[in-house]
Design a protein around this nucleic acid. Sequence first.
RNA 1: CGGGGCGUAGCGCAGCCUGGUAGCGCACCUGCCUUGGGCGCAGGGGGUCGGACGUUCAAAUCGUCUCGCCCCGACCA
Length: 581
Amino acid sequence: MRWSTTLIPTLKEDPADAEVISHKLLVRAGMIRQLSRGIYDYLPLALKVIRNIEAIVREEMDRAGAQELLLPIAAPAELWQESGRWEVYGKELVRFKDRHERDFCLGPTHEEVITDLVRRVVRSYRELPFNLYQIQTKFRDEVRPRFGLMRGREFIMKDAYSFHPSVEDGRREYQNMFETYRRIFTRCGLRFRPVEADTGAIGGSLSHEFQVLAESGEDAIVSCDHCDYAANIQKAEVKRQPHSGRDLKDSSPALKKVATPEKKSVAEVSAFLRLPADRFIKTMVYKVDGSERVAVLVRGDHEINELKLKSALRGQDVALAGEAEVQKATGVAPGFLGPIGLKLRTIADHAIQGMRGAVTGANEINAHLVEVDQERDFTPAAFADLRLAVAGDPCPRCAEGRLESYRGIEVGQVFYLGKKYSEKMGATYLDPEGREQPIEMGCYGIGISRLLAAAIEQNHDENGIIWPFALAPFQVLLLPINYADERIRKAADPLYDELRQRNIDVLLDDRDERPGVKFKDADLIGIPLRVTLGAKGLDKGCVELRRRRDGSMKEVPLEEAAATVQEAIQAGLSEEALQKN
RNA sequence: CGGGGCGUAGCGCAGCCUGGUAGCGCACCUGCCUUGGGCGCAGGGGGUCGGACGUUCAAAUCGUCUCGCCCCGACCA
């Protein structure tokens, strides 16, 4: 492609409305433009990258035995009412009426539509299993779209759904997809980590997320430095440890009330009493299923994991109580709550068990209790794993490891759904004994457009994007210093033709621009290889080959340039494929 | 949904407080010049100041409403 005939509207300055680096660079590199909140035009350069991602996804999905299909983006409300999600999904689901006043929605995901298709088609176990996928635009009316393509309302997604005659077969396919995702993200040239994940709104019993590692990621993840345990912080288990009581004398000093005027938070009381945060017991009041109030205890340096709390309460909805609600339920203001004498059902994190010499609120304004001994002074209804894991925690799976924490961008997630949709929607088959059975299901998503942004978050420098070879919109950029110069042009044009003959995706910067402008734009759009053709080099019969990633440069005889470029691309691709993840 | 901020040329911004002929940089067009990291000189085009209503002799500027975009937020006791 010749630059002069394409549309790559680069910008010198960051767009005013962009916050994160991928958003800034996508706009500055002329790849996307915003049409509306969370809705973007994909310009040619962006679409080329998307097509590259899609090609990798298709190859690997097909290789794994899945088949591509395409489902409608608009779906009738009835399907969503059947699954129960018409009511549950909320405002994220865009609804509209057609001219006959029938309710429809735009698909934010396609479990309903595909389950409906399959139940109308499949009769027998002989027709199972299979895995169907599509690559399609999705629409979710996010509360707060942000960060450019990272959280858009309209986005491109690959979604796959598999159907099985047994749990074992479903698990096999889950594993198959897990490995396929590993291959896909490895081939994309990304550093990533699969982590155990919560199943969230989609439902199901087993799930992993694929997180592209990037400082700017919205997700916190932890992984073991010793074994291969890794999990989203929301899901990460905490190993039950022996209690952290200070001194294990037979008896604790007597309980003592101390005045703590206006000191409410752990940080404030900790500073005031000169005691470390891990000596504190934090008491939080939760609304459970909207009515009951439950007190939850965690150590002062820990934080409650509401997902764990929810499962400890057998799946009831939990929400932190407001200040007025706390006052009403306990008779004291938040900040001075403690488990001793509290007339509420109380559950405590494991770390609370056996604590001695602890500090808690006194259940009266401006006072705390010190020298609290859990076994002596109070007994919660239950102990459970209720807190968020933190870096340094011992690994819940192996003996030696410690957890490290990272930030990540979720670009893929696999779910084992089981019978969740098939039972509700009556997707069944006849087993060999002639009995009707609900189909076992799994589903597997990849955020294609988010992957585009994540790749940039992970691969950029102060000058612009640094594309992995596997995703780059062009493999190589030809940069004639002065294309109007006949000698340079007569070197550039044949090289351009030869690269094209070798089936290499090449961009020729044939614009009548100053060299500086071309160099800046070249770095900005991030093509992995750049061949510079200038008078100095041509005097020696040479051109210059430069790698975008490390800036390394070498002179190459003009006649060998095409072959050298081809080798460099091969080398780059295999280097990416061998990257350890 | 709540709170805050911003809408002025394609992009980035000033002007608004204190009403009086709409500006700057970049980009763009023409010519000359220049050609290894966003050159130089000269000339030029482009704006219903987001929209509506109001106040006023007069509104980008003041008021009311409205639309759009950005950021923050569901309380860690």
